[in-house]
Design a protein around this nucleic acid. Structure first.
Lengths: 152, 152
DNA sequence: GCTTGACTTAAACCATAGTTTAAGTTGCAG
DNA sequence: CTGCAACTTAAACTATGGTTTAAGTCAAGC
């Protein structure tokens, strides 16, 4: 009925090496891992979904240790709802902060892209560097103002 | 005329310890660092702006080694415009990819926030877990569809 | 004249997140 | 029978991005 995956299948599905999956399991990032009769790890859709969740947490900058703590709470069941709720709310706030930072970085780099476009066309960085503010494209004006770019 | 900062001032201005600034300089992340007659580092607005740029690159996940390479090219002058342009374009693409990933993570965690709100109110995770798809708030329906959330 | 804040080098140390290696064992498929 | 892919443990190793320490020197301000 339910399709089962070997560690190799799961690795392919998730786009990570099998060694990483073993590492995760050893470090308590995968709850209730099933094994076949001869001891091989078996993954069902729930496991994959769980690991995608773990990937999200990792992407958001949550250290493995904290992910493990969350999983411990998950295993303890409904009595830990309050605490898990706090953790996911905190994590969302952390992601929002990261998004802000990353968007700012994007603007900054975006400006540099424009800068080198202009520099390439004219052959020198002096052109974008010395361009008067009111001759800049509006988008670039906005970025320079927001990112406190004054010189370069 | 131009205000100069000691390493302590610069550290305060940038919100990082002085030891980190020395580490950066030693690793070639600050071009043309001036020194006072007695050998102390001096920072002008250009240096601070440059370091803010370096911070953006770091936020975007660029390793120190590559930042140093970029700076080498910068020092070489206008002959490296083409190569620097390539680097910032690549970096922008990397940031865009990261933003996509992070937004996906945010949606996922956002779903979990809703999940634990519902779980808390009813006292059990079974409530959000077993809620029929068409009874979910539209926002949550969208997230579940997008993030391939089927079970939890 | 002492304290403060700067400076030096080199090496040690830390945490994080894995990867690799060694030296096997096991079971299925061809 | 052979080979492949899985499994085990424990430890070593890698890379990144710093921080800390040692053992000083140096100049300015109070």
């Amino acid at each position: 009925m339910e399709k089962l995956y070997t560690i190799g299948d799961a690795a392919a599905e998730l786009g990570m090496p099998a060694s990483t999956i073993r590492f995760y399991e050893k470090n308590g990032l995968i709850p209730n891992q099933q094994r076949s009769s001869d001891g091989r790890r078996l993954f069902d859709e729930d496991d994959l979904e769980w690991m995608r969740f773990v990937e999200r947490l990792k992407v958001s900058g949550m250290p493995i240790k904290e992910i493990r703590e969350y999983i411990q709470l998950y295993i303890e069941g409904d009595s830990t709802i309050e605490e898990r709720r706090r953790i996911v709310y905190e994590r969302r706030a952390a992601i929002d902060a990261q998004l802000e930072e990353l968007k700012l970085a994007r603007d900054f780099i975006d400006y540099k892209c424009w800068y080198y476009d202009v520099a390439r066309e004219s052959g020198t960085c002096d052109t974008p560097k010395n361009m008067p503010f009111d001759e800049l494209p509006e988008r670039i004006q906005r970025i320079k103002a927001k990112c406190r770019i004054n010189r370069y």
